[in-house]
Amino acid sequence: MEFFYMYMPIAGVDVFWPGLVLIGFSVGVIGGFFGMGGAWMVTPGLNILGFPMAFAIGTDMAHIAGKSMISTIRHSKFGNVDYKLGLVMLAGTMVGIEIGAQLVMYLERLGIVGSVVRWVYVCFLALITFMVFYDYAKAVSNKKKGITGEHGTEGITWYKTLHKINIPPMMHFHRAGITCSAWLPILVSLLTGILAGFLGIGGGLLRMPALVYLIGSPTHVSVGTDLFEVMISGLYGAFTYSMKGRIELVAVFVMLTGAAIGAQIGTVATKYSKGYGIRVAFGIAVLCCMISIILKQYHFNAASAVLILSTIGLICLYICKIMFQGAAKELREKKQGQPS
């Protein structure tokens, strides 16, 4: 049994390392598929393993940065990362996170920070869930009516209106295939940044849908570009939390090793999945995240952890299924295609 336990030099505790690999793996799968960091998934997992919570934040952040890097490299091969869009948005994200953090400190002085943050979070998650499913329903009904745009059937098309704003400089984003005022992505990323800083999360959960619905980037490019953003903010987060001593490097490395494999599965699965498939699964993940936060607000901690972990497990299996079925089909077709 000793073999399965690994000594964490800074925390000074033994941790069941296959558990860490498994967390890394599942978050890698889900993160690669949805383009989010997944800090909200890692913490309850670490908690159950008996990992010292004092080190959870930094460990989480560093792991997410490394994992997003692996996924970004893979997405980049698919041409899913719009670096130009990513860099433009980075400016807004940074300023936004800073503003958000200041806002939290202001609320802290007023002494109402805890529940305000949590309820704002819940509201936004509810909004995103609603948007995802409303959009899906609209797209389905449009399809029935036979209305199809140039990219197939679409539901919410707010970005088309937003693209009409033409305050210079106008920019063309090649990968995402959109042309709009540079201020649109900056403004959107500023808003998502403020929220991310305010809520203390990486922001992939908010940025991915914002990219889809407000900027009008295709789902796959949204996932890839968002991962690029998550990577940079994750590295930043890892640095600041390490400065506060909140990191256990050994755990980061163990989790990353699991994440490397998971990220491949999650990322390659986007190839075999329709944009709407990704969005609906994303909506379900967000919904579960929301419920778990509400449960936590009322101190049903165990129920919240169970909900999150089982959601992760199921979504993870679903994505693995997509990936392996798709890959098997492709390989079969390839074999048949060859004359020998």
Partner: peptide, 17 residues
């Protein structure tokens, strides 16, 4: 911590690739 995480991430990314 930051540099090693980035390096290891890169290494794993290219190895997996």
């Amino acid at each position: 911590a930051t540099v090693l995480t980035a390096l290891y991430g890169c290494f794993l990314g290219f190895l997996m690739d």
